[in-house]
Amino acid sequence: MNNDRDDHDPIDDILREIERVMNEMMGDDVHIDRSGSAGFGSDLHLDVFEADDQLRVVADLPGVEKDAIDLRCDGDVLTVAAASDRRDYEERIRLPATVDEHSASATYNNGVLEVTFDRAGDSADIDL
């Protein structure tokens, strides 16, 4: 007896539901493959540290060559894109404060990326 239900894998239903919920929460197109790992940026470990006048983002990018890292910032969102032989990373991080993107400095050592920004100054008063 071989019907269509015998070929059904309940894990597929679970993965589809996780994918639907993630897409709903993130507003992005996240794809989960049969191994359970999500697409870009799924296991990028990242921390954001705030100080009075600076913001620092630290990310683990194991196995990535320095030349394969692309960083972009518009003052509010930092985009980290990187590729290695084993996977691709692309993460958009909404920064907790507006930064001066032109003040950015970055280092990459032993798989650890560190990006530092100066906080953007207060809005300027306009005299009439």
Rank of each mutant, 00 (worst) to 15 (best):
M1Y: 10
N2W: 09
N3A: 08
D4G: 06
D4V: 11
D6P: 02
D7Y: 14
D7G: 08
H8N: 10
H8I: 14
D9L: 12
P10A: 08
P10Q: 09
I14A: 14
I14C: 06
R16Y: 05
R16E: 13
I18D: 03
E19C: 04
R20E: 11
V21L: 09
V21K: 07
M22E: 13
M26G: 14
G27E: 10
D28S: 14
D29K: 14
D29I: 10
D29P: 01
V30A: 05
H31V: 15
R34Y: 06
R34S: 12
S35H: 08
G36S: 10
S37H: 15
S37L: 15
S37I: 14
A38E: 05
G41R: 03
G41S: 10
S42N: 15
D43Y: 09
D43C: 05
L44S: 05
H45C: 02
H45M: 09
L46Y: 02
D47E: 15
D47K: 12
D47V: 13
V48D: 01
V48Q: 05
A51H: 13
A51W: 03
D52G: 15
Q54C: 08
L55T: 01
V57N: 00
A59C: 02
D60W: 02
D60C: 01
L61V: 03
P62K: 10
G63S: 12
V64D: 00
V64L: 03
V64F: 02
E65H: 09
K66A: 11
D67K: 13
A68L: 00
A68N: 13
I69L: 03
D70E: 11
L71K: 03
D74Y: 07
D74I: 07
D74P: 06
G75M: 04
D76N: 11
L78S: 02
T79L: 05
T79Q: 10
T79M: 07
V80L: 08
V80F: 02
A81W: 02
A82W: 00
A82V: 04
A83Q: 15
A83D: 14
S84M: 04
S84F: 03
S84E: 04
R87Y: 09
R87W: 04
R87V: 05
E90V: 10
E91L: 14
I93A: 02
I93D: 00
R94G: 10
R94M: 08
R94C: 07
R94I: 08
L95D: 07
L95Y: 06
P96Y: 07
P96V: 11
A97I: 07
V99K: 00
V99N: 00
E101Q: 15
E101M: 12
H102P: 01
H102Q: 15
S103A: 11
A104G: 04
S105L: 06
S105M: 07
T107K: 04
Y108K: 05
Y108S: 05
N109L: 14
N109F: 10
V112F: 06
L113S: 00
E114A: 13
E114G: 03
V115E: 02
T116S: 06
T116V: 13
F117D: 01
F117I: 04
D118R: 09
R119D: 04
R119K: 15
A120S: 09
G121C: 02
G121H: 07
G121P: 05
D122C: 04
D122Q: 10
S123R: 11
S123D: 13
D125K: 12
D127F: 10
D127N: 11
L128D: 12
L128H: 13
